[in-house]
Amino acid sequence: MSRPPRLTEDEIATGLTALPEWTREGDSLTRTAETASFPTAIRVVDAVAVTAEQLDHHPDIDIRWRTLRFVLSTHSAGGLTSLDLTLAARIDEALSTVS
Results as ranks from 00 to 15, higher is better:
Asp62Tyr: 00
Arg43Ala: 10
Thr51Gln: 13
Ser96Trp: 00
Gly15Met: 02
Ala52Ser: 14
Leu29Met: 10
Ala33Pro: 06
Leu72Ile: 01
Thr32Asn: 01
Thr81Glu: 06
Glu53Ile: 06
Thr8Leu: 07
Trp65Glu: 00
Gly15Asn: 10
Ile61Gln: 01
Leu80Arg: 12
Thr30Glu: 12
Thr17Trp: 01
Ser2Gln: 14
Arg64Thr: 07
Gly79Lys: 07
Thr86Trp: 08
Asp92Thr: 03
Leu19Arg: 02
Asp92Asn: 11
Asp46Asn: 13
Glu34Arg: 15
Glu53Lys: 05
Ala77Cys: 03
Ser76Pro: 03
Thr8Gly: 11
Pro59Tyr: 03
Ala52Val: 05
Thr81His: 05
Trp65Tyr: 14
His57Leu: 00
Arg24Asp: 10
Leu83Trp: 13
Thr86Pro: 07
Leu68Phe: 00
Trp65Gln: 02
Ala88Leu: 07
Ser73Asn: 14
Thr17Glu: 14
Asp60Lys: 06
Thr30Cys: 11
Ala18Asp: 15
Ala49Tyr: 04
Ala18Ser: 15
Ala36Val: 09
Glu11Trp: 07
Ala47Cys: 11
Glu9Ala: 15
Ala47Ile: 01
Thr17Gly: 08
Asp56Pro: 00
Ala47Arg: 08
Thr35Leu: 15
Arg43His: 06
Leu83Asp: 15
Leu85Val: 07
Arg43Trp: 06
Thr8Asp: 04
Leu85Trp: 07
Arg69Gln: 08
Thr14Arg: 15
Leu80Lys: 12
Glu21Arg: 14
Arg3Tyr: 11
Ser99Arg: 14
Val44Thr: 01
Leu95Arg: 03
Leu72Cys: 05
Ser28Tyr: 10
Glu53Leu: 12
Ser28Gln: 14
Leu83Gln: 15
Gly26Phe: 05
Asp10Tyr: 09
Arg90Ala: 15
Glu21Leu: 09
Thr81Pro: 03
Ser28Lys: 14
Gln54Asn: 08
Ile12Asn: 12
Gly79Val: 06
Thr14Pro: 02
Thr81Asn: 06
Leu68Ser: 01
Ser28Val: 06
Ser37Gly: 00
Ser99Cys: 07
Ser96Thr: 15
Trp22Cys: 05
Ala52Asn: 00
Ala41Met: 07
Asp27Val: 10
Pro59Ile: 04
Thr35Lys: 13
Ser76Leu: 00
Ser28Pro: 04
Val44Cys: 06
Asp60Asn: 11
Arg31Pro: 10
Ile12Cys: 11
Thr8Gln: 09
Ser2Phe: 07
Thr74Cys: 04
Ser28Phe: 09
Ser28Leu: 09
Val44Pro: 00
Thr51Asp: 13
Thr30Asn: 11
Glu21Phe: 04
Asp92Ser: 01
Trp22Arg: 05
Phe38Lys: 02
Thr23Phe: 08
Leu19Ala: 09
Thr67His: 02
Ala33His: 14
Trp22Met: 05
Ala13Asn: 13
Ser82Ile: 14
Thr40Ala: 11
His58Ile: 05
Thr17Lys: 15
Gly15Tyr: 04
Arg90Trp: 06
Leu68Gly: 02
Leu83His: 15
Leu29Pro: 01
Ala89Trp: 01
Ala18Phe: 05
Arg69Glu: 08
